[in-house]
Computed example of a mutant assay.
Amino acid sequence: MVLSAEKLTHIPRHVAIIMDGNGRWAKKRLLPRIAGHKQGMENVRTITKAASAAGVEVLTLYAFSTENWKRPEKEVSYLMSLPVTFFNKFVPELIEQNVRVMIMGNTDQLPASTQKACRDAVADTAHCTGMVLNFALNYGGRDEILRATRQLAAKAVAGDIQADAISEQDFDAALMTAPLGDLADPDLLIRTSGEERISNFLLWQLAYSEMVFTDRLWPDFTPDDLQAAFEDYAARDRRFGGIKK
């Protein structure tokens, strides 16, 4: 199924997804965990196309967290190979869909082949003007906030800014989502697999995001499930701390 903006009354401009449940998907089928990650990668393609067709402007996917290095070495090695495989296979389709790739996270800590695949995907899609497909890769929300704090502190020490004058806008500009401008904060967060936590993801940016938690494992998450999340989102009353008249 391909979603259409005409089917919904209110499409979230920025959707963030914690793609959870690949390992459990594989375990249910008596398969190795990497089989779940492979299927999850295939589903990134499906959901990206569905979100783009629906009119989403930014789709941010939590691909690899700063804590995921704690997993077994073989699994981490496979996860590091996925961006290479994904971009080699699907960049032509992304270009056809007018989707632009963005990467945020500490990519300098990734294997050289993974870094190159990311750089090439960003460069190859830089001319695209449609949806931004933003991968959070080796990303952690606390790490991002610490880096932004250090950056602003250094500017204050250098005399470029006054510490007591630092604003939310200054902090926004120091975060990894700054290139997204007014789309930096997700309107909707979706987490699959039944877990109900944000797991160190976009801690600053999720302050007023609507959240949808689903029991569906990520490899089984379909465009129909995405539409259901959008319908849930459209029915909510977003007041941002105020009162609507």
Rank of each mutant, 00 (worst) to 15 (best):
Q169H: 10
A184L: 14
G36I: 07
S77A: 15
E93R: 10
Q109V: 09
R24Q: 01
L180E: 08
A126R: 12
S77C: 04
M176Y: 07
A153T: 09
K245P: 15
M19D: 03
F213V: 08
F135M: 13
S77Y: 00
T60C: 07
V212Q: 09
I198K: 05
M80G: 00
E67D: 13
H127E: 14
T149I: 12
M131Y: 02
A178V: 08
A35Q: 05
M176A: 15
K74R: 13
T66A: 04
T149Y: 10
E75S: 02
A117N: 01
M176S: 11
Q39G: 06
G55F: 04
F90T: 10
C128H: 05
T149C: 14
L61K: 06
Q115G: 02
F64C: 05
L226I: 05
H37A: 04
T66N: 00
T177D: 04
D220F: 09
L82N: 00
R119S: 12
V56Y: 07
A53E: 06
T66D: 00
D224E: 15
A126C: 11
S52P: 03
I145S: 02
E96H: 11
E168I: 12
T129G: 11
R13F: 01
T66C: 02
A207N: 07
E57H: 06
A178I: 09
A156E: 03
R216K: 14
M19P: 00
D182V: 10
F213D: 04
T60S: 15
M19V: 10
L82K: 02
D224I: 14
K116Q: 13
K244V: 12
P219K: 11
D124R: 14
K70P: 00
I198V: 15
A154D: 12
S52D: 04
R216Y: 03
A50Y: 02
R71S: 06
A163F: 03
A165H: 14
R142F: 06
T60A: 12
A173Y: 00
K49W: 09
H10P: 01
M102T: 07
K74A: 14
L206P: 03
K155R: 15
L175F: 05
Q162H: 12
S113M: 09
A229R: 08
R197M: 07
K116H: 08
F90E: 03
N106S: 13
L3C: 05
M102C: 13
I95W: 02
G105H: 01
D160F: 10
T129M: 13
I145H: 02
W218K: 04
A165L: 15
P72L: 10
F230S: 08
P179W: 14
E93A: 14
P72S: 09
P83C: 06
V132E: 00
V101S: 02
V56N: 01
R142Q: 07
Y139T: 11
A178C: 06
I145Y: 01
M104A: 11
G36P: 02
L188C: 05
T149S: 15
D185F: 08
K70F: 03
L226N: 01
V157Q: 14
A35P: 01
K116G: 05
A228L: 08
A148N: 06
A154R: 14
A16D: 00
A207P: 01
S113Q: 12
K70C: 03
R238E: 02
L180R: 11
H10Y: 10
